[in-house]
């Protein structure tokens, strides 16, 4: 899996609560059997003025000039600043795949939906939860300063602001370790294969009807 250690980049502010996974990547793009190529359709319905189709060349599609991804000052942004309950709705991992494919490496929000939050870590994307009033300030500063960048340091769990202020953030140790080292979850779990087998054999004795 992709590592996440440090990241410095332009902040893209998406000022909208309850951003759902249909908004992040509409369903017509879920027909792909690949993990890649979803970036051009990230936020498709908000980003373009027409209806997007799978496998379409998006370079000629009409852009919505009001949408944040289309504004010159946010081009190349790698950090998404968002509002509460980001990623609610379906379990589609195509949502983090689309964010990753676009180049987003870190999402900062006051809260995330559970399944989406979990899916981010599986794809080397770091979701950071900050207090709502701090997120408010980041939105204000991003709007006020063109080229506003944040520097994320996962090892030290710190966000460095352009004015030198340092914001701390929490992350569960196991998730931090997996991201910092780009570890493969399945290999890690298979280190416990003997425990799984022992459990399975006890469970089968206790609940044989589950093993018919």
């Amino acid at each position: 899996m992709k590592k996440f250690t440090q990241e410095k980049g332009i902040v893209i502010p998406l000022d909208r609560a309850n951003v759902d996974t249909d908004y992040i990547i509409p369903k017509q793009f879920l027909k792909s059997i690949k993990r890649t190529g979803f970036g051009k359709n990230l936020f498709d319905e908000a980003r373009y003025l027409d209806k997007g189709l799978p496998d379409e060349d998006c370079s000629d599609r009409p852009l919505n000039p009001d949408f944040v991804l289309n504004q010159a000052r946010y081009q190349g942004g790698r950090i998404l600043l968002a509002r509460e309950n980001f990623g609610c709705g379906s379990s589609r991992e195509h949502a983090p795949w689309a964010l990753d494919d676009y180049g987003i490496r870190c999402i900062i929000a006051p809260s995330f939906a559970d399944i989406f939050f979990n899916n981010c870590f599986k794809n080397g994307i770091l979701p950071i939860v900050l207090e709502e009033d701090i997120v408010d300030i980041l939105f204000e500063e991003t709007a006020a300063n063109e080229g506003y960048e944040l520097e994320i340091d996962l090892a030290n769990q710190q966000i460095l602001k352009p004015d030198g202020e340092v914001l701390a953030f929490d992350i569960e140790p196991s998730r931090k370790k997996v991201l910092l080292n780009g570890l493969d979850d399945i290999s890690l779990t298979l280190q416990h294969a003997d425990d799984i087998k022992a459990f399975e054999s006890r469970w089968q004795q206790q609940s044989p009807w589950l093993f018919n």
Partner: peptide
């Protein structure tokens, strides 16, 4: 519900972390 990485994880290990 789970994401696709976890679908793979369950297929391979019969468990979830």
């Amino acid at each position: 519900g789970i994401g696709t990485s976890e679908v793979e994880h369950v297929l391979a290990t019969q468990t979830l972390q």
